[in-house]
Design a protein around this nucleic acid. Structure first.
Length: 958
RNA sequence: GCGGGGGUUGCCGAGCCUGGCCAAAGGCGCGGGAUUUAGGGUCCCGUCCCGUAGGGGUUCCGGGGUUCAAAUCCCCGCCCCCGCACCA
């Protein structure tokens, strides 16, 4: 067995030692600059990530072989709060976290406990990731390695510069924003900060302030609703008699009012820009039977009891619109049936009896009161039928929103979805409405174990992706970019339109502080948008040990935005202490490498990082430095299951490499899927591929012993070389478009299969022509495989006596003299003939047959076929053919043949010498079929001769 | 709700943009054969239905339509997946 690991490590070391992948400026070569989204290192990379990083490496290697000066750098993203969170959880000995890090990521215990400090987590996984990438054989220029955050000051200064410039351009704005919030710990909660409720939505309730006058005091009952337009159909109010309500003084800005809301709502609203002072607590029943005024219509409506009202949802105050809200209708029905309850609150049952529903919306398929109809349809019995009522509500809301037409002035005739906005706007303007954010589900629990609330944050910094001029520039850049796969362009376009203000800083986690407001730390999606430019100067920064404080904004301005100027370099040098030659070097590198040719990442980054990447480039850089292409890839699953570190269902990239070898892993991942489709890792297939690669290795090792002599080749040799040409062409075209799977099919499988056929076809031959052919194939095959399996390709390249590294060898191009379509057709012809003979034997049950007689098409049939192929039409072909007197003699036969050919649309015809092909392959056909083959005998056996057609000889088996 | 993408033969998955050599690549699975003491591996053959001569029939979510011709184009419907932000 081949020791892949030893081979791989040998070449990895050589590449590093000889700095094969650390390109210098070389004006003689075209440059090619490709980057991939750097990994966020909260753990080991798994085989799903492997795809994202292997693709750019394969492309980088391909382009390098094509003669480009290729830059493929790498860095590490450590910005944000997850790493800090992990450190905290390790400190608190959280069992789940310890399981993941000790058992899934296999961190040794003595190191694990140092993870209480996030810096140690970062250090550990950066080292591990680098080792993994080296072991994967990635052709990365490690001289440009860096990591984000203030832990790496030069980069941090670069980010500060970016934000200063964005702010100058007015693209950073301050504002308010709501966040999920832990009210006990006092911190915003991201998705990863929740143990429950990650996908609970935040709803935007409109509060309509109904007026209660009591002893000449005005109180507001803010009814919470998602459908403000139904305020025109309110017949009564609902409070839960059992729930606790409060009277509170509510200060909002300079406005002060007295509200009646549930106790819970008072608490929640205190996080939403409301200063709340509770004056009195009481049960809801206290207010039942009182009358309040609808602030929009001026109607006086009565407060009635309803148990469906949840004090822990929104304000606990609900307006009743029975015509259009199934819950309201059901609750009204309930109290009509149960007059006792009304008497208890001293309400005259006739009042309830006389409530008449107000129809607001015209809805096709329903009468006046859709809520009533829908409730009946679903068989609602009382307000306790919560499930049915929720379904009915959903149906009605959806139908009315999309198809309903409002029928009350001043909105008569307008669609409901418009009226909804208009009513809300109007109420806000009149000061009779307010707003409240609420979760769509109560169970939102932070990782600290507390129930989350929604808090409105002030002084939040945003990047204003909603800026219309900025959007226009982003669209312009996108239009000029290549997007792979092209089908994803629509999504980019939609996201550019959709993006609006994006909060760009927070108060927790690792990162770069905002230079003008250092309490805030720039968050991770905002500090990773233009770092591809930093890579171009990173080599010099690392090499000369340039300090963060030396990198003042003017230095970046000069390097990235301005024209070459010795004067400026001198000035900056004096100011910063960076030698002016070094400033020059950085500037030259940036100008040489930029613009970025390709940005790679997994498809999940399209709605955020990749689009931000476009936006920030067009904001900061000159047009000639705007990026040129984005290629996205899909994800990976493991044996059909989604990879999940918390369930332990992951295969670490490094473990896969150690188990199978880097080349096997690389080729396997590249062969499974391409572009944005996903792949599934199956262990059994990996094992199989390993064997095939071993076979590849053995074959080339064998062919390396052969000599490429200039001898006369046989047709089948020429066939193989023609097929090799096809493989070169196919693989090259596929790689140009990042189609790795197609490329592997050409570069590996098609050659493997052709070789199998060739070996079968040349069994027994061991002449110089065969050896020369195989030797030529080997030479090309190794190079075609080099981007995918670089290590064994290097090893085999040496065996073949290739010069230098195969990584730097010339990518093969099709050899003009090898193209030979005719021979390929002849070979297909032989294959088809063998298949036909075999089929005849089975279908006609001729297992004991001895001989097959083959009749090729007569010359006149070929001539007719050629004419038909040219004319593609019965009449035209017929008149052409009939010019020939010989043909006229066969008038009827010819006419029939033309008819048949036209009907079959047999217009793609290329002449081959059938008989020659048959005679050359005779022995082979006999071996394959086990029959004696007689070619074009005089005797018309079985009367088959007339069936012969061009490319389809007549066959008689006996 | 808004937005993006899909539904192909047992499965995965090409092909569909640029209609026709498409019963539909390739792989997996399954069946048969060769090699082998056996297993594994490797190599051949088969794998929608029918067929004693290489043929015929019915397919590409459902329903319409365009066309000499549709998996491929158009319309309607059904179903599925993904993203929606301060989070990497």
């Amino acid at each position: 067995m081949v020791d892949f690991k030893a081979i791989e490590e040998k070449w990895q070391q050589k590449w590093l030692e000889e700095k094969v992948f650390e390109p210098q400026i070389d004006e003689k070569k075209p440059k090619f600059y490709i980057t991939v989204a750097f990994p966020y290192l909260s753990g080991h990379l798994h085989v799903g990530h492997a795809r994202t990083y292997t693709i750019p490496d394969v492309i980088a290697r391909f382009k390098r072989m094509q003669g480009y000066n290729v830059l493929f750098p790498m860095a590490w993203h450590i910005t944000g709060s997850p790493i800090v969170g992990i450190a905290e959880r390790i400190k608190h000995r959280d069992p789940q976290t310890i399981y993941v890090y000790r058992d899934v990521y296999k961190v040794p215990e003595d190191i694990l406990w140092t993870f209480e400090d996030p810096v140690n987590i970062v250090k550990y996984f950066m080292k591990a990731a680098k080792e993994t990438f080296i072991r994967a054989g990635f052709s990365v220029d490690w001289s440009r390695e860096f990591h984000t955050t203030s832990l790496f000051p030069p980069f941090s200064k670069f980010i500060e510069w970016q934000f200063l410039r964005l702010k100058e351009k007015g693209l950073i704005v301050k504002g308010t924003h709501y966040v999920r919030w832990d009210p006990v710990v006092g911190t915003p909660l991201g998705d990863h900060d929740l143990i429950e409720g990650e996908d609970v939505q935040i709803l935007d309730y409109i509060l309509i302030k109904f007026v209660l006058e009591e002893n000449s005091e005005v109180y507001y009952l803010p009814a919470a609703t998602l459908r403000p337009e139904t305020v025109y159909g309110v017949t009564n109010m609902w409070l839960n008699p059992e729930a606790t309500y409060v009277k509170a003084r509510v200060k909002s800005g300079d406005k002060e009012e007295k509200w009646i809301i549930s106790k819970e709502a008072a608490y929640k609203l205190s996080f939403q820009d409301k200063d709340i002072e509770v004056l009195e607590e009481f049960k809801g029943e206290k207010l039942i039977g009182k009358w309040v005024k609808n602030p929009v219509t001026g109607d006086e409506v009565i407060i009635l009891p309803a148990e469906f009202v949840d004090p822990d949802n929104a304000t606990g105050v609900v307006m009743s619109v029975p015509a259009h809200a199934p819950f309201d209708h059901a609750a009204l029905e309930d109290i009509k049936k149960n007059t006792e309850i009304l008497l208890k609150y001293d309400i005259d049952p006739r009042i309830v009896e006389n409530i008449s529903y107000i129809s607001l919306i015209e809805l096709e398929g329903y009468g006046e009161f859709p809520a009533v109809e829908e409730s009946e349809k679903l068989g609602v019995k009382s307000q306790k039928d919560v499930e049915k009522l929720e379904q009915a509500t959903k149906n009605i809301y959806k139908a009315e929103y999309h198809k309903g037409v409002f029928k009350i002035e001043p909105y008569k005739g307008k669609p409901v979805n418009e009226v909804k906005e208009l009513v809300a706007k109007d109420m806000f303007e009149k000061g009779i409405a307010d707003r409240m954010y609420e979760f769509s589900d109560k169970n939102v629990i932070s990782r600290f174990g507390n129930r989350a609330v929604i808090k409105i944050i002030h002084d939040q910094w945003f990047i204003d992706y909603g800026n219309p001029e900025w959007k226009a520039k982003a669209r312009e850049a996108l239009a000029q970019m290549k997007i792979l796969p092209e089908s994803r362009r629509a999504q980019f376009e939609a996201i550019i339109e959709w993006l609006d203000k994006k909060a760009c800083a927070r108060k927790v986690g690792l990162g770069t502080p905002l230079p003008w407001d250092p309490e805030w730390v720039i968050e991770s999606l905002s500090d990773s948008t233009i770092y591809m430019a930093y890579y171009t100067i990173s080599r010099a920064v690392n090499k000369y040990g340039i300090k963060g404080e030396q990198l003042i904004p003017e230095v970046f301005d000069y390097i990235f935005l301005e024209n070459f100027s010795e004067e400026k370099e001198k000035q900056l040098s004096e100011k910063t202490g960076i030698p002016k030659e070094v400033i020059r070097e950085m500037k030259e590198e940036f100008e040489y490498w930029y613009p970025l040719d390709w940005r790679c990442s997994a498809k999940d980054l399209i709605p955020n990082h990749l689009t931000f990447f476009i936006f920030n480039h067009v904001a900061i850089f000159r047009k000639e430095h705007w990026p040129k292409g984005i290629a996205v890839n899909g994800f990976g699953t493991l044996e059909g299951q989604k990879m999940s570190k918390s369930k332990g269902n992951v295969l670490n990239f490094i473990d896969a490499i150690e188990e199978n070898g880097a080349d096997v892993v690389r080729l396997y991942i590249m062969s499974l899927a391409e572009h944005d489709s996903d792949f599934d890792w199956k262990r059994s297939e990996v094992g199989k591929l390993r064997k095939q690669i071993e076979r590849f290795y053995e074959l080339i090792t064998e062919f390396a012993k052969y000599e490429d002599k200039d001898v006369e080749l046989m047709d089948i040799d020429k066939w193989l070389l023609h097929r090799v040409n096809k493989a070169i062409k196919g693989a090259t075209e596929a790689l140009e478009e990042f189609r790795t799977r197609t490329a592997v099919q050409w570069a590996f499988y098609s050659i493997l299969n052709d070789l199998r056929w060739y070996m079968r076809r040349t069994e027994g031959r061991n002449d110089e022509a065969k050896r020369a052919t195989l030797r030529r194939l080997a030479d090309i095959w190794v190079r075609l495989m080099a981007p995918f399996t670089p290590h064994i390709a290097e090893e085999l390249w040496t065996k073949l006596g290739g010069e230098g590294f195969v990584s730097l060898a010339k990518w093969p191009e099709p050899v003009e003299e090898w193209w030979n379509k005719t021979i390929e057709l002849e070979e297909d012809y032989i294959k088809a003939l063998i298949d036909d003979i075999k089929e005849i034997i089975t279908v006609a049950k001729l297992e004991n047959a001895k001989r097959a007689y083959i009749y090729t098409a007569e010359e006149w049939k070929w001539r007719v076929a050629e004419i038909v192929a040219e004319k593609k039409d019965f009449k035209a072909a017929m008149s052409e053919v009939m010019k020939d007197p010989e043909m006229r003699k066969r008038g009827k036969e010819v006419s029939k043949l033309i008819q048949k050919l036209v009907k079959e649309r047999a217009f793609e015809l290329k002449r081959i010498d059938e008989e020659k092909a048959l005679r050359q392959a005779k022995a082979f056909i006999e071996r394959e079929t086990g029959l004696e083959i007689i070619i074009n005998p005089e005797e018309d056996k079985g009367g088959k001769k007339k069936q012969a057609m061009p490319m389809k000889p007549a066959i008689f088996v006996e």
